[in-house]
């Protein structure tokens, strides 16, 4: 584990983000900082605006106000494409795999951003086409091995179980070699074994590759175990920010999220 919130370089600074859909305010004036190399968990009850927050970070939603500073560069709005080129990877809450492709094709698609060969080179099989394909396949195979997907690499993703699909989606995000990974409920709906596997993968990615991770999760046990930094949201506003211990003892958080205590 890294040494928490203090004494670290900020990787991404989110300032005063406001997001509304028509008259409905999804996010109100949220600011927080994600530090380099940490695992930052965003928690909060359903409808608190967590997924919207991730969508703002990688440009799927455009906020009405506020700014995002990623690696020192300040943006009023992000575009999904430029977020990807800058090194922000992402998985989705509802699996968003390319259902018509196999596992290895899905993961290779994650690296398409790095492939420079044009469609003419690809069509004729000349120039960079073949070399790139082999080179990136090697990189993808490393990910497949890391995630233990060897036996199903040629299987169409639509025939895989939910847990495996989530794993493939993580692989696809990882294939782009992101500097920051946004994971939207990576372990929701899994059985205990799959959960533990996934938690291990997330920690290993964080430690071995130094990838900064922002994750949304409902499983408090996992959140408190893996994360260095927790941001709590409720009704679109931030109500807590700090280390897991700090957040757990924050009265507002206890009231809003973990429930008001009745014991005295």
């Amino acid at each position: 584990m890294s040494n928490g919130v203090n004494g670290k370089e900020p990787h991404m600074v989110i300032e005063n983000i406001d997001l509304a859909f028509g008259g409905t305010k999804a996010i109100t004036d949220i600011s927080f900082t994600v530090y380099k190399g940490e695992i930052c968990a965003v928690i909060g009850p359903n409808g608190a605006g967590k997924s919207s927050m991730l969508n703002v970070i990688n440009g799927v939603y455009i906020p009405q106000q506020g700014s995002i500073t990623f690696e020192g560069k300040k943006f009023a709005k992000m575009k999904p494409h430029s977020a990807a080129t800058m090194g922000i990877g992402r998985t989705f809450q509802n699996i968003a795999l390319f259902s018509g492709m196999s596992v290895v094709e899905n993961i290779m698609t994650g690296r398409n951003l790095m492939m420079k060969s044009t469609f003419i080179e690809n069509a004729l099989g000349i120039g960079r086409s073949k070399k790139e394909e082999i080179l990136h396949r090697e990189a993808c195979e490393e990910i497949i091995e890391f995630l233990g997907l060897q036996s199903i690499r040629k299987t169409p993703v639509s025939s895989l179980s939910y847990g495996l699909q989530k794993r493939v989606e993580l692989g696809r995000a990882l294939a782009a070699e992101p500097k920051m990974l946004l994971l939207d409920e990576p372990i929701a709906g899994m059985n205990i074994e799959e959960k533990l596997d996934m938690a291990c993968f997330i920690q290993e990615i964080n430690r071995n590759r130094g990838t900064t991770i922002v994750l949304i999760e409902h499983d408090m046990g996992v959140v408190m175990d893996v994360s260095d930094h927790v941001v709590v949201m409720d009704y679109g506003a931030k109500i807590g920010d700090g280390t897991p211990e700090e957040v757990m003892s924050n009265q507002k958080v206890i009231d809003a999220y973990l429930g008001v205590s009745h014991d005295d």
């Binding site: 799927v60 977020a83 990877g89 390319f98 698609t109 398409n112 492939m115 060969s117 690809n122």
Partner: peptide, 27 residues
Amino acid sequence: NMVRSSTGRNWMAVRDMDIAANVIGIS
């Protein structure tokens, strides 16, 4: 040749899930 290379994967990514394709950097 195209469908088994990045060109074809881009096409299929757009077909299957265009938002996800955009998020992983496919224009």
